[in-house]
Nucleic acid binder design. Structure first.
Lengths: 230, 230
DNA sequence: ATTATATTTATTGTATACAAATTTGGTTTC
DNA sequence: GAAACCAAATTTGTATACAATAAATATAAT
């Protein structure tokens, strides 16, 4: 079976959304490599669904920019370039700068505690060098931080970029030295937030993203991870 | 007929895309007001197509954030708040700041001439106070300027926000005083670009968007143009 | 042999059919 | 008269069927 299915069913939820999540996951993790053509019948059979909901899922992926559509030829998984990674982190950073003021302003004691709870768990994951778990917690941490601002549209932009970052996050987290620094930086973030030090946070986040980007870029350059289109 | 259809057919292009464009247009122009429920059969009949391509169009609109999906209840046109407008212009401005350096760097004589040609046409439209034509030219002008940078992902973010701005652009352009100032500013932009004055451009664009936002916000507040959800 | 041209096959595009769920209206019951 | 319940109608969710287009293969002509 070309890509692993994971159960997300739970209650009654349109299977087009389940298909959407699964395909997205498979693309992000590279199970379906860039350049691959997604033939509807193949994936419909694999997911044991009909073409109708699968096509609806594809239309969503199309708007997400994860796949490209060619007339009468169906969809193809889009490739990445070094420039893409650079832009993604640039956008991410700019958006963070925009919401930081309201994050500082809205940060209640409860919210800070919530962040500390996540950090506590990350400490444990860090100790046992569980990169997989750290990747998930990392997203949770950043997501929680960002959602303290209630800038819904900006969060939406961050989310859309996030999709792409995930695709390289494994690479970034794999770097031991970066993992150590990033872990310390996460602690610093919460401390600065508690002190409501906006300027300090701005500098720290800028640094945080810059380092992540560089780690990611060098890892990608070394391993030539970027897939070539067509 | 609740909303006017316009012919985009031309060659062979999936009708789901035509449906998508038409629905998008109808939502942006307010022909389908916020809060409206989009019943599939109603619009499929109206567009003389079946539900299948219509649904695919809806999935795209869903990812665009123009409509909201509720389980087993279909899609509803999303409403706007004052905060939305504020965020949209904030994002727009931040993105412009990100691409301005590469716009200045990549601006060839040809590109500047292209901008001047557009300005020439806008002069005429401004003279005869053709707000409708100005709105279109305005987008062309900004779009051309932005595309001088080849930051594809950032342009994508700008584009996605643009959808929403369109919805209020008529309002902004309708203001006579804002129209005059904006028109002058457009000329200034090209002059500064020719001089490769990055700092000047940054200040001008920041001002340009700030003024547009304020005009838009006050117009909306006065006329209570914001539609209420549910 | 190579090109040109049918012919078949694979795949996407659209329509229709049916199932599942929700809403609506009415009837019954207290 | 209000609440609870049942039935019909509406609407979404999914599957299937068929049409249209493109790709692949085979066949024919030079």
């Amino acid at each position: 079976m070309p890509f692993q299915a994971f159960d997300t069913s739970l209650e009654s939820r349109p299977i087009r959304d389940i298909a959407y999540e699964q395909l997205k996951h498979a693309i992000i993790t590279g199970q379906i490599p860039a350049g691959s053509r997604i033939v509807e019948t193949v994936y419909a059979d694999q997911l044991h669904i009909s073409r109708t909901p699968l096509r609806e899922a594809l239309r969503k992926l199309e708007r997400d920019g994860l796949v490209e559509y060619v007339l009468h030829r169906g969809v193809v998984v889009r490739a990445f370039t070094i420039d893409d990674i650079d832009e993604i982190f640039t956008i991410r950073n700019a958006m963070m700068m925009l919401i930081l003021p309201s994050v500082v302003q809205n940060a209640t004691a409860e919210k800070i505690q919530e962040l500390r709870d996540i950090l506590k768990q990350m400490d444990a994951e860090y100790e046992r060098a569980d990169a997989e778990a750290l990747a998930i917690s990392n997203r949770l941490f950043h997501g929680t931080m960002e959602h303290i601002s209630d800038k819904l549209r900006i969060l939406r932009v961050i989310d859309s970029q996030e999709e792409y970052i995930k695709r390289f996050q494994a690479t970034t987290i794999a770097s031991v030295v970066r993992r150590t620094n990033a872990h310390q930086e996460h602690h610093d973030m919460v401390n600065l937030l508690e002190k409501k030090d906006l300027d300090g946070l701005k500098i720290l986040f800028q640094h945080h993203f810059e380092e992540s980007k560089e780690t990611c870029l060098s890892a990608v350059r070394e391993k030539k991870l970027i897939e070539i289109n067509e």
